[in-house]
Design a protein around this nucleic acid. Structure first.
Lengths: 124, 124
DNA sequence: ATTGTAGTTAACGTTAACGTCAATGATAAA
DNA sequence: TTTATCATTGACGTTAACGTTAACTACAAT
């Protein structure tokens, strides 16, 4: 159980960010007797996923959908099945992303080879 | 040589976007006798790179740096060498991105396995 | 020559994802 | 118990990447 400051420092984000994520419905830390936010390790795990998503350009809206997957409060089996289905779709999307990233990499490598050839031409 | 409309339609962006990219210094199409923008195939190739970058969450600022790599007007050898160095750095960054994406994928797959186990437990 | 569509610049509007106060309440240290 | 932090909820400010509108010009077709 950590305070908002500790959690923010631990993940390198601002406290405002944590409050915003809560306001946005992404994170729902508990409250102390004096109404102060307390972050469990569950919350931390969730935050880790959120930040990983952010790192790769997903919007908070998309992340919300992804994170809802990992909430325990799914009601019943149908919900669970739909969650799995949705999760598998996401994995496919990520696989597609990886492939396209690889393409981007290859394109850049090709262009670099061109550049190097130009350098060698100048040499002679 | 295409008009702004044709180019925009071809790439699925708005004309405003093309004008903004120019204003931002990313794209520099030629002008017709009547001062209207004309896009060459070179411009189109550049635009393609820009959009690919965007797709993966790079900012226009970062893209500007990347795209400058591919401009022909590099002055002299030193510039070319620096371009290559910078390009190789980018490739490394992309490789790192790919690795982390793969991690994200694996994490999600693990979570899906957990979900499925829960489903099976309910079954019994 | 006129009409309709597409183009131009300039300027203000918009949304996401926070940053930054301000006014006030909670907690820990002396 | 006072003081110094740290917390809370508004509310307004900010930046990137365009959208939208206005007032005007170019061009293609009839």
């Amino acid at each position: 159980m950590k305070s908002i400051q500790e959690t923010a420092a631990l993940f390198g984000v601002s406290t405002r960010t944590l409050r915003y994520y809560e306001e946005f419905g992404l994170l729902t830390p508990g409250r102390s007797s004096g109404n102060q936010r307390v972050y469990s390790s569950q919350d931390a795990a969730k935050l880790k996923l959120i930040l990983r998503g952010k790192k790769y350009g997903f919007s908070l809206e998309q992340i919300r959908e992804m994170v809802l997957l990992f909430d325990e409060d799914r009601s019943g089996r149908k919900q669970l099945e739909r969650s799995i289905e949705y999760g598998e779709k996401r994995v496919e999307e990520i696989e597609r992303s990886i492939r396209e990233f690889q393409l981007l990499k290859e394109e850049m490598e090709d262009l670099l080879v061109n550049f190097k050839q130009k350098l060698e031409e100048e040499e002679s």
